[in-house]
């Protein structure tokens, strides 16, 4: 073996070594197959390590900027389902108009819920922006994702329309574009962005996007702006502050002092939307008065080929 001299005989011996037997070929192919399967995982493993390294470096070096943690607090004591003004719930209406949400989508929907002692309460329900979001967990292509600010968004340019996220959402807060959505023609001019989902794309899922783009621009979400009784607070868990446009509250105190709760807390989804229990008593609503005005999709003109469906 150690001898380097090559006689003709050895040469052919060497050549024979290189000739691949069938068994060997199969072995090599098998090994190549294993590598082919494992290889794509490799960069992500390495990537994770290097990402962790950068983070440590970052902690040593420059201080990272503040990352907002957007939350919403809905004061049910102040919500009368817009019975007082005898109009459809203004939060839903403003959301529809601001986002060109197609009929029958109500990204923030006002449900009327029976109270155990009789009478009802109104519960405006946007996407809960769960911190442990079932929809984000099951999405096969990461079309729905959580931003560092804690907002759950959908990339309608990636969504494959399998609707598994809708099947697992415990709050019924996801909407599918079953056909060519009935939207106004002007929405086609909108610059699409997962933070501003217009225009609607057929065969994809949509939902409340929590308006982080508006918050960054110093504005409240459409729903909070439009609420005639200022029942909707929007704020930042990180800075511990929230506002309904009328007054500023210290978020943690406001939640604690008013017995705030979250919907279906027991499911462990950890929503970012809090409720303060009530049935419109602060705006003198009679809890035994049932019903609210039906939501309207106000557009006169709709895009070509638009069809409306029922949920």
């Amino acid at each position: 073996m150690s001898s380097q001299k090559e006689t003709p005989g050895q040469e052919s011996e060497n050549l024979r070594k290189w000739r691949v037997s069938r068994r060997r070929l199969l072995k090599i192919m098998g090994a190549a197959g294993v590598v082919a399967v494992v290889a794509p995982i490799f960069p992500s493993l390495v990537g994770k390590v290097s990402a962790a390294r950068t983070q440590t470096n970052g902690a040593n070096g420059a201080k990272p900027g503040r990352i907002r943690q957007w939350v919403m607090v809905i004061d049910l004591r102040r919500c009368d389902g817009c019975q007082g003004i005898d109009e459809p719930p203004q939060c839903t209406q403003a959301c529809i108009q601001g986002h060109y949400a197609p009929e029958p989508m109500q990204w923030i929907q006002v449900f009327e819920h029976e109270l155990p002692g009789g009478g009802t309460q109104f519960i405006p329900t946007p996407c809960m922006q769960c911190h442990n979001a079932p929809c984000v967990n099951v999405c096969p292509v990461a079309a729905t994702f959580t931003t560092p600010e804690g907002v759950v968004l959908i990339d309608q340019e990636r969504c494959i329309g399998c609707r598994l996220c809708m099947a697992v959402c415990p709050y019924d807060r996801r909407f599918f574009n079953w056909g060519n959505a009935p939207i106004p023609p002007e929405s086609l001019l909108a610059d699409y962005n997962p933070e501003h989902q217009a225009p609607a794309k057929r065969g994809t899922v949509m939902k409340c996007d929590f308006c982080p783009d508006m918050a960054r621009a110093g504005k409240l979400p459409y729903c909070a702006q439009a609420c005639p009784t200022n029942a909707i607070y929007y704020g930042d868990l990180e800075e511990d502050i929230a506002t309904n446009g009328e007054k500023l509250v210290k978020l943690s105190h406001f939640l604690t002092e008013n017995q705030a709760y979250r919907l279906k807390e027991d499911l462990g989804t950890h929503p970012r939307v809090y409720y303060i229990p009530g049935h419109g008593e602060a705006v003198s609503r009679d809890p035994r008065r049932h019903g609210r005005k039906a939501t309207r999709w106000p557009w006169q003109e709709k895009v070509e080929g638009a069809r409306t469906w029922k949920r």
């Binding site: 999405c139 096969p140 079309a143 494959i160 598994l164 994809t204």
Partner: peptide, 23 residues
């Protein structure tokens, strides 16, 4: 056949997440 966007089936390979039951 059930997909809303069958044209995006390649996304399952391009962006597939092993955390999803579909994968």
């Amino acid at each position: 056949l059930d997909l809303g966007r069958p044209d995006r089936i390649p996304n399952l390979v391009l962006f597939g997440r092993w955390q999803s039951p579909i994968l």
